[in-house]
Amino acid sequence: MAVFTPVTETDARDLLADYTLGELRALRGIPSGIENTNYFLTTSQGEYVLTLFERLTREQLPFYIDLMTHLAEHGIPVPHPQAAHDGRRLAELNGKPCTIATLLPGKCEMSPLPAHCEQVGATLARMHLAGRGFPSVQPNLLGLAWWQETAPVVAPYLDPGTAAILRDEIDVQTAFAQTAAYHELPRGPAHCDLFRDNVLFAGTRDAPVLGGFIDFYFAGCDTWLFDLAVCANDWCIAHASGAFQPELAQALLSAYDQVRPLTDGERASWRTVLRAAALRFWMSRLRDFHLPRPAQTLTPHDPTHFERILRLRRDGDLFPLP
C-alpha cells in the first residue's frame, strides 16, 4: 500500500455520498507498500479502507472485488467491499477506479511464532477450499509470462553471474510449466502475496487471534501450492538469512495439510514451486527498485532478500511437506 494519488477530505465526502456508510470523521494515508493508493477512512458508522488502483485496469478489477466479496460471504476473514446505492462495489475517484472495504481487526505480526503460522496455514487452506465455487477466472498476472517478459528488463542491473542465475531459473520454470506434473497440481483462486504484512492478528502475541487476510490485488488463479510456497518463503524463515525455521514451517504446513490434505504431486513439486515463488518476488523487487514509479510515499523493498532465498532453495534449503 502507498499514496500515489492525493485524496482530500472533500473528495472523500463526495465519494461517501454514494454510500450508506455514514459521514466522514477522518482520512489518513497509508504509506507502506508499492502498488495502490490507500487511506484509512473513518466514518460515523465504522472503519474502512479506501483503495485507489494505480496498476490494475477497470476491466481487471471485478475479479478482485468479486473474489473478496465471495470469500467474505463464505466466512473467510477478508476485507468486504461495500456496495454503493446502485449496488456497485467499484467506483471512481480522481480519475482512478476505487473501492471501500471493511477494516479488519488487528495488526501485522512481523516476528511470528508457531501459533501465528498455524492460524495462517489453516486459514489459507480454508480460503482455497472456499474459492472452489468462485465462477470467475483470471490468471496470476505476475506469473510465468510476466517473468519471461520482465527478465530482459531487469537483467542489465545484475552482475553477469547473477544474471545467469536469473536466466537459468526462468528456463527451469518454463520447462516445469509444460509438464504433466505441473498441470495436475490443484489450483484455483490464490492470494499470491500472503506475506507477514498482509495478515492481521488481534489478541496477544502469546495468544493471537487471526483478524484476516488483506491486500488481494495480486490475486489470481494459480496452483494452490504456489500460494503456499509464497507464504512459506516469508512466514517460515529467518528474515536475515532466508533459511527455513523448522518450528515455523512445521506449524504452517501441518495446519494447512489438516484442512486441505496435500497430494503426492504437490510433495514432488514442492522444491520447484518454492523456487518459483522466490523468483517472482525477486523479479518484482528488482523492477520496483531499479525502475520505480514516481509517488508521494514509496517504500521500495530490497531485491537481494529474495535473491538470497532463491539461491537457498536452488541449493536445497527447504522444509518437506507433511
Rank of each mutant, 00 (worst) to 15 (best):
residue 66 D to N: 14
residue 231 C to L: 10
residue 129 L to S: 11
residue 259 V to F: 00
residue 58 R to A: 14
residue 256 Y to K: 08
residue 156 P to K: 00
residue 172 V to Q: 11
residue 184 E to S: 14
residue 126 R to A: 11
residue 94 N to C: 13
residue 254 S to E: 15
residue 217 Y to C: 10
residue 176 F to Q: 11
residue 73 E to L: 14
residue 251 A to N: 07
residue 227 D to K: 02
residue 45 Q to L: 12
residue 76 I to L: 15
residue 80 H to I: 01
residue 295 A to N: 00
residue 249 A to T: 10
residue 24 L to W: 02
residue 71 L to M: 04
residue 297 T to Y: 11
residue 14 D to L: 15
residue 134 F to H: 06
residue 28 R to A: 14
residue 283 M to I: 15
residue 62 P to A: 04
residue 120 V to I: 05
residue 313 R to P: 03
residue 272 T to P: 00
residue 73 E to K: 10
residue 205 R to P: 12
residue 10 T to V: 14
residue 311 R to E: 11
residue 310 L to C: 05
residue 175 A to Q: 12
residue 258 Q to H: 15
residue 209 V to E: 13
residue 98 C to W: 01
residue 96 K to N: 10
residue 158 L to V: 08
residue 104 L to E: 09
residue 184 E to A: 14
residue 37 T to H: 07
residue 299 T to A: 13
residue 322 P to Q: 06
residue 75 G to H: 07
residue 88 R to Y: 01
residue 146 W to N: 10
residue 270 W to H: 10
residue 267 R to W: 00
residue 12 A to N: 01
residue 141 L to T: 12
residue 49 V to G: 02
residue 152 P to N: 00
residue 239 H to V: 14
residue 62 P to V: 08
residue 3 V to D: 09
residue 72 A to R: 08
residue 60 Q to V: 00
residue 174 T to W: 04
residue 63 F to T: 03
residue 200 L to D: 06
residue 261 P to N: 04
residue 7 V to P: 01
residue 75 G to E: 12
residue 34 I to M: 13
residue 220 G to P: 04
residue 252 L to S: 09
residue 107 K to R: 13
residue 297 T to W: 09
residue 161 G to S: 11
residue 139 P to K: 06
residue 76 I to Q: 08
residue 139 P to E: 07
residue 39 Y to Q: 04
residue 150 T to D: 06
residue 245 Q to Y: 08
residue 58 R to F: 07
residue 170 I to W: 04
residue 314 R to L: 15
residue 268 A to G: 08
residue 220 G to M: 00
residue 143 G to C: 03
residue 305 H to V: 15
residue 129 L to C: 09
residue 169 E to T: 13
residue 218 F to M: 13
residue 140 N to I: 11
residue 253 L to Y: 09
residue 150 T to V: 12
residue 135 P to I: 11
residue 147 W to N: 11
residue 274 L to V: 02
residue 302 D to N: 15
residue 256 Y to L: 02
residue 147 W to P: 01
residue 198 N to E: 10
residue 147 W to C: 12
residue 276 A to L: 08
residue 119 Q to I: 06
residue 287 R to H: 05
residue 290 H to L: 04
residue 55 R to E: 13
residue 150 T to K: 12
residue 87 G to K: 10
residue 108 C to D: 10
residue 213 F to R: 06
residue 45 Q to H: 12
residue 230 V to C: 09
residue 258 Q to P: 03
residue 277 A to V: 01
residue 154 V to K: 11
residue 225 L to Y: 10
residue 212 G to F: 04
residue 271 R to I: 11
residue 183 H to V: 02
residue 158 L to S: 05
residue 251 A to Q: 08
residue 153 V to Q: 14
residue 173 Q to A: 02
residue 228 L to D: 03
residue 54 E to Y: 06
residue 179 T to N: 02
residue 180 A to D: 15
residue 167 R to S: 13
